[in-house]
């Protein structure tokens, strides 16, 4: 089976078809727009952050390819209820995985379902699709405005 087949698995196709947490969020404490002019992908991420920096609610809306949409959808399901520091560390692992620098089968990680995007590493042109919503949330080149949670250096994943 080729890498593209592995990439477009049923879970990813399902999240593209029926994206989770796909809604505007009245009362969001943070909103950020992610835009990739190269492929026209447009995603807005909404977050509600409670006391102790916990992400109480997370949603998104927008248009894009299946990879960017499924990635945004899975991001919302994986980060809801987590502290910001954990979200930031998880993005670090996710980013390294899609760049091909972290093998989720052999190296320790907290990626869980996000491992589905490992196939992106075969297509360097698609990394930006997989990370669009994450950049909007955490910060990065694809985030035109200030990100929801600006990145800080040295954010280690807390012990689980």
């Amino acid at each position: 089976m080729s890498q593209a087949n592995e990439l477009y698995q049923q879970v990813i196709l399902d999240h593209n078809r029926n994206p989770r947490n796909y809604r505007e969020m009245p009362g969001a404490t943070h909103v950020c727009h992610g835009h990739n002019p190269l492929c026209g992908d447009n995603i807005t991420v909404y977050a509600k952050v409670g006391p102790n920096d916990v992400i109480e609610d997370l949603s998104f809306q927008g248009n894009g390819c299946a990879i960017s949409k499924a990635s945004a959808s899975l991001m919302t399901t994986q980060l809801k209820g987590k502290p910001i520091a954990e979200a930031r560390a998880l993005f670090g692992e996710f980013h390294e995985m899609v760049k091909g620098n972290l093998d989720p089968e052999t190296q320790p990680n907290h990626l869980g379902k996000l491992k589905l995007f490992e196939g992106v590493k075969e297509y360097s042109s698609r990394i930006k699709c997989a990370t669009l919503s994450w950049h909007a949330l955490i910060g990065g080149p694809r985030c035109r405005e200030s990100p929801v949670f600006p990145s800080r250096s040295g954010g280690a994943f807390p012990p689980s």
């Binding site: 593209a4 190269l38 992908d41 390819c65 299946a66 297509y123 698609r126």
Partner: peptide, 20 residues
């Protein structure tokens, strides 16, 4: 999306261009 078309056609060995 055209980018999905391009990457998915690649699984059948078909090379096309997708983008602007």
């Amino acid at each position: 999306h055209p980018h999905d078309i391009g990457t998915m056609l690649d699984m059948d060995g078909i090379a096309i261009r997708a983008g602007h």
